[in-house]
Design a binder for these strands. Structure first.
Length: 292
DNA sequence: CGTGGCCCCTGATTGC
DNA sequence: TGCAATCAGGGGCCAC
């Protein structure tokens, strides 16, 4: 499922295939897909008809399509299984098609939101009052992501030091840093040789800057090959899968040798998910052990 | 208040 | 074969 690199691939697809197009009609096929929209499916469809999409933007795992003539955006989140597909109008409906957006031009394609698990969705929002980039108000609490030139590194380090939590939880906390999910958290921690339960308060400035560098590196590497995909659940806006799963060093490699030291990698249940790590390269350290 | 845990869904896979 | 349990890359919300 999509983290920042996958969402950015989708954003670029929307920029190419959807920006500048005017909506003809919208069909909402599942109410959960618009549950964040205050007025419900009928209101979502009615308010979007006749509007023209401007250039899509992204922060972390959220993306939004500003409406050219209004201070409103269609906010999208792909959740665990969401896809935004530009399909020929006569292509058969996908099994989990939730929203269809038709356009008022002769291009012959439409935008489809397809989402098996319905954790994702689309909704219409006004921009946050102080936002220059049209950031929808409901995601004003989402921090800038590590690929954002305005990401504040010094403030990030100070926030980590002030938290009484562990490093992987902090990487997944979208109000501190956005765009990092379970896969890239494990990958960055492996690269940084940090155990996922290392208390953030014990990280030196140097270590947190290093970790951030690894987060950026792994995301840029994924972006270069179109994101990560294990199966057909994730495809980009044209229906093509990414290839980064071939390059993962930690995620999904239980019992396989660590690519640095050869020790079998481990998987531990963690927050209803899994953490993958090398028991030799990524030790908890004295402080974490004494605290636990 | 900050932090951790729960839960919203569907479907594939695994184990009995 | 069938059924139950487990798991999946997210994040809002609510107890404590």
């Amino acid at each position: 499922m999509p983290e920042l690199p996958e969402v950015e691939v989708v954003r670029r697809g929307l920029e190419r295939w959807v920006a500048g197009r005017t909506v003809d009609a919208v069909e909402v096929l599942h109410p959960r897909a618009v549950r964040r929209h205050a007025g419900g499916g009928a209101d979502f469809a009615a308010r979007l008809a006749g509007e023209t999409f401007a250039v899509p933007r992204r922060r972390g795992k959220y993306l939004w399509l500003p409406l050219a003539e209004r201070d409103l955006s269609v906010l999208g989140h792909l959740g665990m299984s969401g896809q935004l597909l530009v399909q020929p109008e006569d292509a058969p409906d996908e099994k989990h098609l939730r929203i269809r957006i038709r356009f008022r031009d002769g291009a012959g394609t439409e935008l489809r939101f397809v989402d098996q698990r319905t954790f994702g969705g689309l909704s219409l929002h006004e921009s946050a009052a102080d936002s220059e980039e049209g950031l929808p108000d409901v995601i004003a609490h989402i921090a800038r992501d590590p690929l954002d030139p305005l990401f504040a590194e010094a403030a990030y380090h100070l926030a980590l030091r002030a938290k009484r939590t562990t490093v992987k939880r902090a990487l997944l906390d979208q109000s501190l840093i956005s765009g990092v999910g379970n896969i890239y958290a494990d990958e960055a921690l492996w690269r940084a040789r940090l155990h996922y339960e290392r208390p953030t308060a014990t990280l030196t400035r140097l270590r947190s800057v290093e970790l951030l560098g690894h987060v950026r590196d792994v995301m840029n590497a994924a972006l270069a090959v179109g994101g990560t995909s294990f199966d057909s659940l994730y495809v980009n806006v044209n229906g093509e899968s990414g290839y980064f799963d071939r390059s993962l060093d930690a995620y999904g490699r239980e019992d396989e040798p660590c690519r640095r030291c050869g020790t079998p990698m481990r998987r531990r249940p963690w927050m209803n998910r899994s953490s993958y790590f090398c028991p030799r390269c990524q030790r908890p350290g004295r402080i974490a052990r004494a605290a636990s």
